[in-house]
């Protein structure tokens, strides 16, 4: 049975992961866009992303678009699996499996 994930369960990180998992498999999202979408500060988002990156759930890639530095964030396969396991665990708390 999947267990709740301590790293993902924190509310901000849960929002971040939900947003990233909603994207298609090869899609990356801009840091600034994510910050505006989730209504967070630079520092707050950066700290949570770092925690998720350390756990191997996301990848950050720095690049240049129109000569301006941009950071793109994407969820890893491990992150997707961990998020899905976490969702399964949450659903099981709401609807526990009946025992015979």
């Amino acid at each position: 049975m999947a267990d709740l994930n301590n790293v993902i369960h924190q509310p901000v990180r849960l929002q971040i992961m939900s947003s990233l998992v909603a994207l298609d498999l090869d899609e990356q999202v801009d840091f600034t866009y994510l910050r505006k979408l989730l209504k967070l500060t630079d520092g707050n988002l950066g700290a949570h992303l770092l925690k998720l990156e350390t756990a191997g759930y996301i990848k950050m890639e720095k690049t240049f678009v129109a000569r301006k530095p941009r950071t793109f964030v994407t969820v890893t396969g491990k992150g997707r699996d961990a998020f899905n396991d976490h969702l399964t665990a949450l659903k099981k708390i709401i609807k526990p499996t009946k025992r015979r």
């Binding site: 509310p11 849960l14 939900s18 909603a22 979408l37 989730l38 949450l90 659903k91």
Partner: peptide, 13 residues
């Protein structure tokens, strides 16, 4: 938590 996940997913879309 599940409601927050649904909301965030819909918001991104």
């Amino acid at each position: 938590s599940l409601a927050a996940v649904e909301q965030a997913t819909a918001q991104v879309g």
